[in-house]
């Protein structure tokens, strides 16, 4: 196994410092939106994993701008604020990055359905893995109903999140660079 597979590939340089921060900022916002008290019945238990979507998107298209230590910080902050076990959030985001980095050549430049299918595999797999981890840590079989609902919801919401993140990327990161080249 080569460690090379876990490093971000060389991508066109982004000159604007503000634009370089966009992936970190959007992922942080996604993590925060998930913990805001929206008064929707059952929302707390069934919140879609928004940060997971952001990590998948940015690791696919701009892994250089969403480095591992940022994911560690965001995941840790999430754990501390939500009261879950410290390390769970960071572990989820970092493992997602590792998995996406290893398989990103299969998805980059493909049509959206392929990207969505990739998220179904990676995101769905992460959420099931998380359920198994919690069962192990609590040493009891937690009812998987909420996990499955949450997984389906997350996969269903992904196209909308992907559209938003993609638009942000085009306008703030890719746009200025292309214009300058022209």
């Amino acid at each position: 196994m080569a460690l090379r597979e876990f490093t971000a590939p060389e991508l066109p340089r982004v000159n604007s410092n503000a634009a370089r921060l966009v992936p970190i900022l959007t992922t942080t916002i996604a993590a925060l939106v998930a913990i805001l008290p929206l008064q929707i019945p059952g929302y707390a238990a069934l919140t879609p994993a928004l940060a997971l979507m952001a990590v998948y998107h940015w690791t696919l298209y701009r892994p250089d701008l969403l480095p591992s230590y940022a994911l560690f910080g965001i995941g840790l902050g999430e754990d501390l604020l939500t009261g879950s076990l410290v390390g769970v959030g960071a572990l989820t985001l970092l493992v997602t990055r590792a998995v996406v980095l290893r398989s990103r050549r299969h998805f980059v430049g493909r049509s959206f359905p392929a990207v969505w299918a990739g998220f179904t595999l990676v995101g769905g797999g992460m959420m099931l893995g998380l359920w198994a981890l919690h069962c192990l840590l609590e040493s009891s079989l937690i009812n998987p109903r909420n996990t499955i609902f949450r997984m389906v919801l997350t996969i269903a919401v992904f196209p909308a999140a992907s559209f938003l993140l993609g638009s942000t990327q085009r306008v703030l990161i890719d746009g200025p660079r292309l214009m300058r080249r022209r």
Partner: peptide, 30 residues
């Protein structure tokens, strides 16, 4: 650069186990 990601994954795993064994460990931080 190459070892950051695996190292951080290991660190989060270690924090998870440590936090599970001693529930009060991260309370001040929290």
């Amino acid at each position: 650069q190459r070892s950051t990601l695996p190292a951080l994954i290991l660190l989060s795993g270690a924090m998870l186990v440590a936090g599970k064994t001693d529930q009060t460990m991260f309370e001040t931080l929290r």
